[in-house]
Amino acid sequence: MAAYLIRRLMVSVLILLGVSFITFFLLYALPADPVRQIAGRSATAQTVENIRQQLGLDQPLLVQYWRYLTGLVQGDLGRSYLQRTEVGTLIAARLPASLLLMAGAIGCELVLGLTMGVIAALRRGTATDQTLMIASFVGVSAPQFVVGLLLLYVFAVQLGWFPIGGYGTWAHLVLPSVTLGIMGSGWYSRMMRSSMVDVLRADYIRTARAKGLARRRVILRHALPNAILPVIAMIGIDIGIFMGGIVVVESVFGWPGIGQLAWQAIQRVDIPIIMGVTLVSACAIVIGNLLADLVTPLIDPRIKLR
């Protein structure tokens, strides 16, 4: 186990190194010149050159990358070109909002997805089952920005139940969480259904029924806990999916998280911020996948980590 963990962590570091390398070179291939952005339109050639030197952008790319890496291992993500603030500080200020949003989305996925899945499995083959599974397909196929705009229109503009956008109270959290979580709810309900169907077929369920336990007890005590575990293991994978979704959801709802930070930075060619957010996202994805893999053998002891 320890050996496995160490190897996985080492591979993770290599993966993150690769991500940083590729992102770095992609961003510096951008046709837009960040120095021009900083200096403004009326800047003289001399000013532009000065800024370029100041930022070290006149150095060869590999030298720049090496500098970035040495900063990185000391926990320094560099400074924003435009705001002159440490990227680390900027991200740290925005991260809690994004994490809150993701937690809300996971809650939505679990509540909606698991409930739908369990009901569908128990009513297998009926119209209820069919309807729920079509609903799950709709959830998986719905573009997040459309869901977000529609929810805003119906529940904020027309009904006035929730605020139109922004951040602060619990009411602000509801619509963005549902928007971010609706796709996952679709996947969870499908996984939960098939997991539950498998468990309900198992011998120990037949035994439990045969020894006279009530249906309710069999389902809640014997079937549900076993069926739910493999689905829970997927939460780690979700983090990776969220990292893309938050850019869209945060921009629709004006949610002040790292997705919006990245989106603004991309529009302003603020490369250090884009680098920073990409790396933080990649970290989250790697950790999420690792967690998912570590949880699996706890749930199913037949699976051994190699």
């Binding site: 961003l27 893309g244 869209v248």
Partner: peptide, 10 residues
């Protein structure tokens, strides 16, 4: 490990 949407945006 790449955030797909971020990569696509870049």
């Amino acid at each position: 490990a790449f955030p797909a949407l971020l990569l696509a945006i870049c």
